[in-house]
Design a protein around this nucleic acid. Sequence first.
RNA 1: CGCGGGGUAGAGCAGUUGGCAGCUCGCCAGGCCCAUAACCUGGAGGUCGUCGGUUCGAAUCCGACCCCCGCAA
Length: 330
Amino acid sequence: MSKNMSAKGGSASGGKNKVRAIFIGTPDFATPSLKVMIDDKQFDIVAVVTQPDKKVGRKQIITPPPIKALAEKNVIPVLQPEKISDIEFEILNLKPDLIIVIAYAQVVPENILNIPKYGVINIHGSLLPKYRGASCIQAAILNGDKKTGITIMKMDKGLDTGSILAQSEIDILKTDTAGSLYKKLSELGAEFLASTLKKYINGKIKPDPQDDSLANYVGLLKKQDGKIDWNKTAVEIERFICAMYPWPGAFASLNIKNKKLNIKILAAESESLSINKYKIGELFLDNNKLAVQCGKDSLVIKKLQLEGKKEIDSEEFLRGYKNFVGKILD
RNA sequence: CGCGGGGUAGAGCAGUUGGCAGCUCGCCAGGCCCAUAACCUGGAGGUCGUCGGUUCGAAUCCGACCCCCGCAA
């Protein structure tokens, strides 16, 4: 009998009326999902809430969040409060049946969570209850997980503690970085969002509470968190570099001509050594390739960037900076 | 006027007590070799970011501007 319901478009509970939804989100991560929701005839996005326009870049140009541009293109009203609680009244007046929150960068207070009858739905970039918190994508790479994924959940007042509606897994490839996974997961989330919401609204999904005993939290990354610890093994550092790419970027520092120079390592590959004969952090040539001695084994550097310089391949780097070989990275 | 680094051959860099523009790699030609991304010989390729100033003479000193990048946000 459930087959009949879905064949009719799953509109048993909503009749001919569309589901009134408010979409809350800010960065690129949320745009594929917003696009899907706009295109789906069964939902009516009555408003989009996003962060205020912020100054961006060296020139400090005031730039609207990506979500705002997409909303305006589709003639959807945009709200940009400093704090979401400032617009509680407006949200109430919009009479949403559903609110979707994706990467908004603010905690949604309980008052607002209680407004829509279907609750507030969130997409999180990990397989909850693993990696609750801000740097969930990076954490999966850092820990060497084989898989990660997205979780669609019904938000409650805790941080990423809501009951789960659906999850979808994805393999973490050796070549994946936080940047590449970010993109894949944002698309994966969008792919499952509309169908999951429909099933949920039609009562075909019962939210499944998380097992808190398996939960762990990962905090927001800071620039300084990108500093490489060369005492770790090459394999760990390789994962670290992928996890920190593109932000905050994995870097090492080097004293050169009495100045401290930061070097970003953008891509590298671990390589096992038969003898670990160099000092930890020392740059050396291995088969004419630039490598660094780690706590165990070595890391062959593929791509790097000096302060004030563009990113370059290590082969090009060596042509101009031959004298860096033998120096020790801090 | 947020702080800082930089623009020199196709690529990455050196060259600032002003005095013929260099290195590594790549490219082209030839040579060696069973052979080669190895080696040897020769060669092409630059208005030294732009404009102006100082000077007998500026990549180098002075001024203005353009562009790239790191930090901070």
